[in-house]
Simulated scan of single mutants.
Amino acid sequence: MPLVTIALPVRNAGERIDRVARSVLGQDHPDLEFLICDNASDDDTAERCRALAADDPRVRYHRQPENIGILPNFMSASRLASGEYFRWVSDDDVLEPTLVSRSLEVFGKDARLVNVTSQTSYKGDDGVVSTSPFTETGLGSDDPLVRFTTMLRLLNASHLLIDPLYGLLRRDVLLSLPRRNMLREDEVMATKLALAGPWGHVDEVLAHRHWKTEKPAVLARRLGVPSWQAHCATTLEFLEVYRWVGDPENTPELTDGQRRRAQAAVRAAWARRERRVAEHRTRKLARLATGRDTR
């Protein structure tokens, strides 16, 4: 059976470590590595992780000598992993025991696949748990342009449909794609993975996550990126995607005509996102003007 690495990039998780560790180590797939990348925590995270590693040989604990930032710690986890297949997990996630085995079943039926996602439930800031089935077929297409435009459409849809970077990935494909520290880099990476190859999906709720709403300025501070990026995050995101997909060195699987069509799709997706943001702001201003917005 293939070795699967589930990696937890973490900083100051404290007691949350114990619950996520139970769900990872409770997987019914026998060949498992649980890799914890501790980004120089200054609470009791290190002690908890060392205890886990001492109790279970499947646990590997790596501690960064200093805080290297959120994205570099995520990238470090994918490089340090040993598994042929790889998945990230967050410190407040819970995985069903069959997540890995069900995902590998899908990989086993289709050698083309680079990523297998599953239906996920999300607990919002209000405590309400929500989920939604995923019925899109475009990500499974042999045509990279179809996969790319499908992903662009999904990035402007509900987050309940798919969590692109929290699927089970072929690690060699993941490592072949560069990443850049910026706001919404996860969405940029999702488009690169869509171009890299077809995806599969398990239409069962196999993961449970928290959906956190953070203002761009707060997230910029956490990521260590310039604060001005918070004011133009959408434009920077789509500009990054536009440049990537237009470069033949990055997208040899596309023809020149497909690249032009892909860039046109990026412009359209950017415009849709900007219209949605403008409409949201207009509605908020209207509520403020009528005294109905008490936030």
Rank of each mutant, 00 (worst) to 15 (best):
D247W: 09
D38T: 02
D56K: 09
P216F: 06
E237K: 14
A21Q: 04
P30W: 13
F134R: 05
P198V: 02
E136Y: 13
V225Q: 10
Y61P: 02
N73I: 01
V277E: 15
E33A: 04
D56M: 10
S176E: 09
L145K: 01
R58C: 08
A40K: 10
T137R: 12
R16S: 14
R11M: 07
L206A: 03
E253I: 06
L8V: 11
G138A: 06
P248Q: 09
V173D: 03
V106K: 01
L113W: 02
D42T: 13
N39M: 10
A286L: 15
S121Q: 08
M189F: 13
E253F: 07
R63S: 09
G200A: 06
D28F: 12
A46P: 11
T191G: 02
G26K: 05
Q119A: 09
K212G: 00
N181S: 10
A269L: 02
F148E: 01
C232I: 12
A268G: 11
D93L: 04
G257R: 11
F74S: 02
N156F: 05
G200Y: 03
G127P: 09
R170W: 05
L168D: 04
M189I: 04
P178A: 03
D91E: 11
V205F: 09
R273A: 10
A233P: 00
P198Q: 06
L104Q: 06
D42I: 11
R267Y: 10
